[in-house]
Every structure is written in C-alpha cells, then in structure tokens.
Amino acid sequence: MLSDTDFIPVEHAAQMARKIGAQLAVLPDTTHMSIMSRPDWLAPLIANRIEPAQE
C-alpha cells in the first residue's frame, strides 16, 4: 500500500512488488501521513489481504 505522493516513487514500488510477487495498492490524493486518515479505503484493503492468509 502506497500513497500517490509517498516518499517512494510509485514506479519503484511497482517494480519491488513485481519482484516479490506482491500486490500494490496506490491510494490517490494521499500523502505518507494522510494515508491513515482514509479508513474507508484501508480497512477493506487490509481485510482482503488478511482473510486469504487465514484460510
């Protein structure tokens, strides 16, 4: 998960995600700090990643 104006450029994060076989979510109109103020986006993203791991 990354904000679109985070410390790490989106393309760099996408390259890292591809290399390790991970999914990347880029949240628009957010910063590194304001990403936590979007629980409406964060909660479903986190729940979606946790549920499959518990099966």
Rank of each mutant, 00 (worst) to 15 (best):
V10W: 08
D6Y: 14
A47K: 15
T5G: 14
G21Y: 09
A47R: 15
F7W: 15
Q54S: 13
D40Q: 13
P39M: 02
P28M: 03
N48G: 13
Q23K: 14
H12I: 07
A53F: 10
H32F: 01
H12W: 13
H32I: 06
Q23N: 10
A22N: 06
Q15W: 11
E51A: 12
I8V: 14
P52H: 05
I46K: 03
L2W: 04
E51M: 09
M16D: 09
I46A: 06
V26K: 08
Q15R: 15
T5K: 14
D6Q: 12
S34C: 01
T5R: 15
W41V: 03
L27T: 13
E11Y: 12
A14F: 08
T5L: 11
L45G: 00
Q54E: 13
I46N: 02
T31Y: 05
A47W: 09
N48Q: 13
P52Q: 04
P28I: 01
M36I: 09
A13P: 04
H32G: 08
T30Y: 02
L45T: 01
P52K: 09
S34M: 06
D6G: 10
L2V: 02
A17I: 07
I35K: 12
T31C: 03
L45N: 04
I50K: 06
H32Q: 11
S37L: 08
I50G: 03
P39F: 06
G21T: 02
I35C: 05
L24D: 00
W41A: 07
V26R: 08
H12E: 14
H12C: 07
L27C: 12
D4R: 11
T5Q: 15
P52N: 02
E11M: 11
R38V: 01
I20F: 12
V26M: 09
